[in-house]
Design a binder for these strands. Structure first.
Length: 481
RNA sequence: GGCAACGUCGCCAAGCGGUAAGGCAGAGGUCUGCAAAAUCUCUAUCAGCGGUUCAAUUCCGCUCGUUGCCUCCA
């Protein structure tokens, strides 16, 4: 059994073999920090978080690098539009650097709530201007780029014969789509900017051998991934919409300089739509995570996202989210009941083996082979439900096998929390409130024993009134808040 | 206009050559003082039309529909 990933470069699934096992270098396109994170960010970073967790689980030492784009880029190479960060700074009447820092903090705050592990290295574009300049100089030395009299530096796409190998586009196709006027100083329309000369009023600009300016919009990923992971990355992840031109240009400018394979496995996740159409500020269906979290548990969102495969388009609707919330609630309750029964004595008994329980063994194999198959989380989750079904049956048995339950508990924790990153919570962290509820349950059960159902129902109804649901099982009363 | 992807039960969503996982919702049974929970059982031939094949949801073609990329975007 081995992990297979869909490699965009190969247009198919391939067994994952890192260059220098057990080390894995993984680079994922990070956010441009000019606004609060939205649903699309959640899908993206949850996807790579699970990949990261799974790679770690199967024994790899993963160095996970993610950039923070804090240089506001123009709309492409074409001198139109405005620097996004600068624009936001103008709107908020503050400094671009302050904007970048504010939204970077906001981003990590949202990711923390989604239980997305921090990358090993988070690097900012503005901290690597020197390296970018060096990279560009290298490309100029190799005649892969040229400087124009306006002070712009462009990559000469025709000098790199493999351009298009990721997206499958030819140069002709790439330029046919041009709908916006091409910058006048390019030799060929498909050439892209490595360095742009800055107007005086442009707030973020740096000195360079070609005058004051700022980096082009692809260069940071090539430069920072090289700095922290070397010339060849095992995995590069990002959104499908970035495969062309962003990733295509990254490959070109990296391979042209180093003459080495830039990326072994290019992983792209699909887009998220809202109510059937692309999420966009102008479309009025733009969902900011901070707003969503006011009414939705971040773990429900995480669960919802993982119920779809990362390479399929995912449509976000309230109805579907609610269905996931109900399903996740049931899963959590099952795990709670399990944890309540499995005592501390059994918690850490590693001697119990799934070899003794064929049904559990099969579930474990199914879960791992789902993950091995291009991180198929929807199937992994369905296997988790199977595991909880086995657990529930065992829990309601008169003659519980505590070893089996402990084993199930261990696997449930491994699958749900460690690999899928779904925080379930602990029954052990009892608050005063929980102790009080337990007290009421004891009182009520005394009433029930004495057939005083008027009182026992009153307790149950009153607790329900404040949102606490009691459930009488064969092994005692449980509750959910 | 060019290039892709997708269309599977009421809803969400896997599978992608050998006659359809799972979740939500729904129906019925068991358990229970009742309720809830849990559990058991039940509910689809895969947009349409052709073709390839012993065999197609799974491959090919066409049609219809939806979405995305080609311009910053996760």
């Amino acid at each position: 059994m081995a992990l297979k990933l869909y490699n965009t470069l190969a247009r198919g699934k391939q067994e994952f073999l890192p260059l220098n096992p057990p080390y894995v270098g993984m680079y994922v396109c990070g956010p441009t920090v000019y606004g609060h994170s939205h649903l699309g960010h959640a899908r993206s970073y949850i996807t790579y978080d699970v990949l990261y967790r799974y790679l770690s689980y199967i024994g790899y030492k993963v160095k996970y690098v993610q950039n923070i784009t804090d240089v506001g880029h123009l709309a492409g190479d074409r001198d139109v539009g405005e620097d996004k960060i600068q624009k936001q700074a103008r709107l908020e009447k503050t400094d671009p650097v302050e904007i970048a820092y504010k939204y970077e903090t906001s981003y990590f705050d949202d990711m923390d709530r989604l239980n997305v592990a921090r990358p090993s290295i988070s690097c900012r574009a503005t901290g690597h201007i020197m390296e970018m300049i060096e990279h560009i100089k290298g490309l100029l030395d190799k005649q892969k780029a040229y400087v124009t009299k306006e002070g712009n530096v462009y990559f000469n796409v025709r000098s790199y014969k493999e351009y298009g190998k990721l997206s499958g586009r030819t140069l002709e196709e790439a330029s046919e789509g041009e709908r916006i006027e091409v910058a006048k100083d390019k030799i060929n329309p498909e050439d892209f900017a490595l360095w742009k000369a800055a107007e005086k009023e442009h707030l973020m600009q740096w000195p360079s051998p070609w005058g004051m300016g700022y980096p082009g919009w692809h260069i940071e990923c090539s430069v920072m991934s090289n700095k922290y992971l070397g010339e060849t990355l095992d995995i590069h992840g990002g959104g499908l919409e970035n495969s062309f031109p962003h990733h295509e240009c990254e490959i070109a400018q990296s391979e042209a300089l180093y003459d080495k394979t830039f990326v072994r496995y290019f992983v792209h996740h699909n887009m998220l739509t809202v109510d059937g159409s692309k999420m966009g500020k102008s479309l009025g269906n733009f969902i900011i995570l901070k707003d969503l979290f006011k009414k939705t548990d971040p773990m429900v969102l995480r669960f919802y996202i993982l119920q779809g495969h990362y390479r399929s388009p995912l449509d976000f609707t309230d109805e579907a989210l609610n269905a996931s919330a109900a399903g996740f609630e049931r899963l959590k309750n099952s795990i709670f009941s399990l944890r309540k029964t499995v005592t501390d004595d059994f918690q850490n008994s590693d001697s119990i083996s799934e070899e003794d329980y064929p049904d559990i063994k099969r579930v474990k194999e199914d879960f791992l082979s789902a993950m091995d198959d291009d991180i198929n989380t929807p199937i992994a989750i369905s296997v988790l439900y199977e595991l909880m079904k086995i657990s529930n049956v065992e829990l309601s048995s008169d003659d519980k096998d505590m070893n089996k339950l402990a084993l199930i508990n261990r696997l449930a924790t491994l699958f749900a929390e460690e690999i899928l990153g779904l925080k379930i919570g602990s029954v052990r962290s009892q608050s005063k409130e929980d102790e009080l509820i337990e007290l009421f349950i004891e009182m009520r059960n005394d009433f029930r024993k004495n057939k005083n159902f008027a009182m026992s129902d009153k307790i149950r109804d009153d607790l329900k009134g404040i949102g606490i649901i009691l459930k009488d099982g064969s092994s005692g009363t449980t509750y959910s808040k």
